[in-house]
C-alpha cells in the first residue's frame, strides 16, 4: 500500500524534474516542477475531438491503459512492505498487465486509420516485444539467486555482499532503466521532442487523443516512470526499516529523473531502424546478470 501511495506521489513531480534538468542544462530557467501535472489537470477539464473513423475501442482504450498501469503499480513492493497485490510469480502478472495496456493503446492508434499512427503502433509493438525477454531473464536470474518468485520476496532477500553482487546491481539497474526508457518511449529509443511524425513512436500513437483521454495517457506515462523508478529503488532497499526506505526511494526517484534529464540533454536518439537490435541487446545484458548469478551460486565449479 505504501509503495502505491509513494509512486502516485512521485508521478506528480517526476516529469517536472526531467523538464527542469533539461532546461537547466540548456541554460534556461524552465517551468515549475508541477507544470506537467497542471497541464494534465487542464486537459482533464477540456472537451474532446474524436475522429469519425474511430470506434468504441478508441474511447475505451485510455481508461483500460490507465487501469492496467494502476494495477501494475499495485504489484510493486517497498522493501519489506509488500504491494497490494503480492503472490508467488506476481512479476509475470505485472508484465502481462502492462501488456494489456499496450495492447489497447496499439489498437487505439490503429483505430484512427492514420498511416502515421499505424507506424507508431507497429514500432511500439516491435520494441516492447524485444524488451520483454530482457525483463524476464532479469527476473528469472533473481529468482534463481534468491529462490523466490515474488517481487517483495526477491527484493527483500537481495543482499549485496560480494563484488559480483555489486556488478549485478549495476547491470540490473541499467536493464531496468533502459526498459523504462523503452516502455515510456524516451531517449535514446524515442525522442518525445521530435517534430516529425515519421520519427516518433509513442507521440505519434496518441496524435488523435484529446481532452480527458490525453490527460489519462499523460499521467499514465508519469506513473510508469514512478513504477520503474520504484523497481530500481527496490534493488537497493533490502530489509531496511521504513524511515530509511522512504528517503532511499525518493532519492533514487530523484536521481533517476535527473539522469533521464541529463541523458536526454546530451544524447541523440538511436537510428530508428536499428532500435530493435539495441533493445534486443538488453537481453544480452540480462544474460550477463544470469551468468553472474551462476557464478555466485558456484555453478561453474
Amino acid at each position: 500500500m505504501i509503495s502505491f501511495i509513494l509512486i502516485i506521489l512521485t508521478s506528480l513531480f517526476f516529469s517536472g524534474i526531467i523538464i527542469r534538468t533539461k532546461s537547466r542544462t540548456s541554460g534556461r530557467k524552465g517551468p515549475g516542477l508541477f507544470q506537467p501535472v497542471k497541464d494534465i489537470i487542464r486537459l482533464f477539464k477540456k472537451g474532446a475531438v474524436y475522429s469519425k473513423t474511430t470506434s468504441f475501442i478508441f474511447q475505451a482504450a485510455p481508461s483500460i491503459y490507465y487501469a492496467s498501469i494502476l494495477m501494475a503499480i499495485m504489484v510493486i513492493p517497498l522493501g519489506e512492505y509488500r504491494g497490494i497485490i503480492s503472490f508467488e510469480g506476481d512479476f509475470v502478472f505485472f508484465a502481462y498487465l502492462l501488456g494489456v495496456g499496450k495492447f489497447f493503446m496499439i489498437l487505439a492508434a490503429l483505430d484512427t486509420g492514420s498511416s502515421f499512427e499505424g507506424m507508431g503502433a507497429s514500432r511500439e509493438a516491435l520494441f516492447s516485444m524485444f524488451a520483454e525477454p530482457a525483463f524476464f531473464i532479469l527476473m528469472g536470474s533473481f529468482a534463481l539467486l534468491t529462490g523466490h518468485t515474488s517481487f517483495q520476496e526477491i527484493f527483500a532477500s537481495l543482499h549485496f555482499g560480494s563484488y559480483i553482487s555489486y556488478i549485478l546491481g549495476v547491470l540490473a539497474t541499467l536493464v531496468l532503466a533502459m526498459i523504462a526508457m523503452v516502455e515510456n518511449s524516451r531517449m535514446p529509443f524515442d525522442d518525445p521532442k521530435t517534430h516529425l511524425e515519421l520519427t516518433m513512436v509513442h507521440e505519434v500513437m496518441i496524435l488523435d487523443n484529446s481532452g480527458f483521454d490525453l490527460g489519462l495517457i499523460l499521467h499514465a506515462t508519469n506513473l510508469k516512470f514512478g513504477m520503474y523508478g520504484a523497481l530500481i529503488a527496490n534493488l537497493f532497499m533490502g530489509s531496511f526499516p521504513l524511515y530509511l526506505t522512504i528517503p532511499i526511494f525518493l532519492g533514487i526517484q530523484l536521481l533517476f529523473a535527473v539522469s533521464i534529464g541529463l541523458l536526454e540533454s546530451f544524447t541523440a536518439r538511436f537510428r530508428m531502424n536499428h532500435n530493435a537490435q539495441y533493445i534486443l541487446a538488453l537481453s544480452s545484458v540480462s544474460l550477463l546478470i544470469f551468468l553472474g548469478v551462476l557464478l555466485m551460486l558456484g555453478q561453474f565449479s
Binding site: L107, A125, L126, S128, M129, F130, E132
Partner: peptide
C-alpha cells in the same frame, strides 16, 4: 525468455490482425 518473446510477438500478431481487419 522464449516464452516471454512468444508473448510479445503474439501481441504484435494480434494487434496487427485485429487492427487490419476490424479497425480503420
Amino acid at each position: 525468455a522464449g516464452l516471454a518473446f512468444i508473448g510479445g510477438v503474439s501481441l504484435l500478431t494480434f494487434t496487427k490482425s485485429f487492427g487490419t481487419v476490424f479497425l480503420g
